[in-house]
Design a protein around this nucleic acid. Sequence first.
RNA 1: GCCCGAGUGGUGAAAUUGGUAGACACAACAGACUUAAAAUCUGUCGCUGAGUAAUCGGCGUACCGGUUCAAUUCCGGUCUCGGGCACCA
Length: 825
Amino acid sequence: MFPYPSGKLHMGHVRNYTIGDVLSRYHQMKGYNVMQPMGWDAFGLPAENAAMANNVPPAAWTYSNIEYMKQQLKSLGLGVDWSREVSTCKPDYYRWEQWLFTRLFKKGVIYKKTAVVNWDPVDNTVLANEQVIDGRGWRSGAIVEKRDIPMYFFRITQYADELLQDLDTLSGWPEQVKTMQANWIGKSYGVRFAFPYGKDEKLWVYTTRADTIMGVTFVAVAAEHPLATQAAQGNAKLAAFIEECKQGGVAEADIATMEKKGMDTGIKVSHPLTGEQVPVWVGNYVLMGYGEGAVMAVPAHDERDFGFAKKYNLPIKQSIAVKDQNFSDTAWQEWYADKENGVCVNSGKYDGLNLEKAVDAIAADLNAKGLGEKKVQFRLRDWGISRQRYWGCPIPIIHCPTCGDVAVPDDQLPVKLPENVVPDGAGSPLAKMPEFYECTCPQCGGKARRETDTMDTFVESSWYYARYASPQCNTGMVDKAAAQKWLPVDQYIGGIEHAILHLLYARFFHKLMRDEGLVQGNEPFVNLLTQGMVVAPTFYRDGEGGKKLWINPADVDVEVDAKARPLGAKLKADGLPVIIGGTEKMSKSKNNGVDPQAIIDAYGADTARLFMMFAAPPDQQLEWSDTGVEGSFRFLKRVWKAVHDHVEKGIVTAYSNGELSANAKALRLQLHQTIQKIDDDYGRRKTFNTAIAAVMELLNSLGKFDEDGAVARSVAQEVLENAVLLLSPIAPHIADALWRELRPGSKLVDQSFPKADPAALVQNEIELMIQVNGKLRGSLLVAKDTDKAALEQLALAHEAVVKHLAGGTAKKVVVVPGRLINVVI
RNA sequence: GCCCGAGUGGUGAAAUUGGUAGACACAACAGACUUAAAAUCUGUCGCUGAGUAAUCGGCGUACCGGUUCAAUUCCGGUCUCGGGCACCA
């Protein structure tokens, strides 16, 4: 993944790009033609915040960050092809995004509708979820409101089925990520049906549990639902409640965890099957715009409805039973929602039916009445991309009073974003710039207004991988031949935090571009490595108005108890206490990022890379600590010394033949086992920490190998040459220098990855573990081809086994070839 | 609240397909070298019991339970921590 140019690299970046560099160097050694590109996800909110804080335009801030971070990346020794560098804030990049937008707009894949946003009534501006803290605007402190505004949407739901199904083709992706995406898309099979009311009017709902329909005791609608609006006329109390529901942010986590509240509208609708009158309530947990904005409530079999019914004394009507379980409405029981074992009860003609049969029967009856039908629904919602911000890609639409929304024609693209603007945090800057928004309609030539919203920055990051194939192409988004040569991406590496949004949007974009005939294949990334996050502790002090002032861990001293648990923390500058927050992913907003530059400066890039790779396997979360960086530095010094000590005695040719001592033979065995192991670690497992450990072990063994004859020295030469090659993807600089020592006149870049010598791997004797009842009691050295019966006899005769048998007989002997023998007594 | 992960010595971790738990390091301690320190090298290093010792035994992979000759690994449940939840990227 390409970085957001936030200012400095942090350890997450170092980890991400070192992993990529190791893999690309390894694959180069394996003979592949590897492209390792880099770019900048350059639009985004932090630039606007920095601009306001420092009175510098976001563009200038961003460009200077790119400059600095590029130097940092170079100092890491990454083999990046900088001729392919891409910056998403440059017109030659976003031009093509605008171009695609106009195509999709004309096709109807992009459309306009209203959506709910966080509104700060004091700053008169839309807030990102991140800018809403405990329901208040981060700058103004005002209570945030929900507000409906018009936005452009990508019709991603049109691709929902394909996005779901193609997950099955991604064998190179972690299961975890595929599961998360499948759940996010959330395909469900249910019934959409209506509660009739008034004169032929219908209140629609959707449910996956139509089998519980006879247990419905009320219907809950969103505050913005037309029925609620209707009921609120002439009901001041209800109107006030509806206003209250509009307070607070729109983030799902907040809505799901807030206290469930409701109020009766006084309106009643008819149950579609029984005709019974059912009250309609307004619920603050029901969202307009998701589904129908109304839900049927079955308190007996839905935990949220149960809690709501208890709180407001609404009836609870059992309609599902599970054998041997007793129903009571005093406390919620897990089995009340059991889908497997439940059958209908108190449900008239549906009694005794299981979920599937009840749903079929109920859907058929609803259908016969014209009140409903089976429907497949997705949890996935269309992707709203309008942002009322300045530092983003302008949406290429012109609003004409006569022609409506008109896409900007190709010859007027790109719609350039002016770069000299400093936003003030109140509303969209572009909407205050007539020189930007005043324009003429491309269709009728009349006076028109340019759209002043910009696009979600996820749009830029959804297709940059494709741009890398032909970054300078000025005839299209991609050069088709280049795209065909390079795409799909063989190895994509990114943080696990992108498992859903970014990776789903990129997959969606690939399909959009495919349908435009720009790229081939259905998926952008063949193999995905999701690196675990680099996390660090957070520290803060309470500022005015409940704002938290985040303090960098580097500026804090932490006191710990004997068990290394933190007791308290103090700011180094003033010695006064600070509050310890959680351990979180390194981010600018929590100020807990650690700048890798200090380590690179003190120890060099190779040590920084080696240490980062040695600390943990790539997909595991890593709590940052530089304890141990000394050890990585020491190891590289040991390698350096071992090579120089060896070379000083004269260079020899690596072992090819000659009589080997037992020790030399054992060393060669270990060497070639190590080659095999590391090849697998780099290629299949992508566990660089164990690869490094294996080289360490090999060098430790070489250190103990003190033979000095010609053959012995040739074996030492062989070990050192291979150790340098095995280490070179991780520590390329030192490996290059050492290779020149070991093989003067030859270059490391021309070497291929070592291959294990099958002759060296032959073992005549192996050690087997002896267990008694699964417990280790000893070991046995046997000839490799000893047969099972003989092994059993040897085990039974083993001194430890005889002792435990104490004259008795073994019940069973389990022989695991090559590993162990377990005697069961 | 919902979805996805993780939990192993003082610390980072290893054990790849159910088969030797703690490889490789860090820290600590002891020793060698040194006038001294640093650097370097060597050794000890999960908890616990017995033994002068060599050694022998018990327990131990967050917690409770299960499957198995054998469980860090598989299954059920619980707790804690982390990620995501659609406008941070």
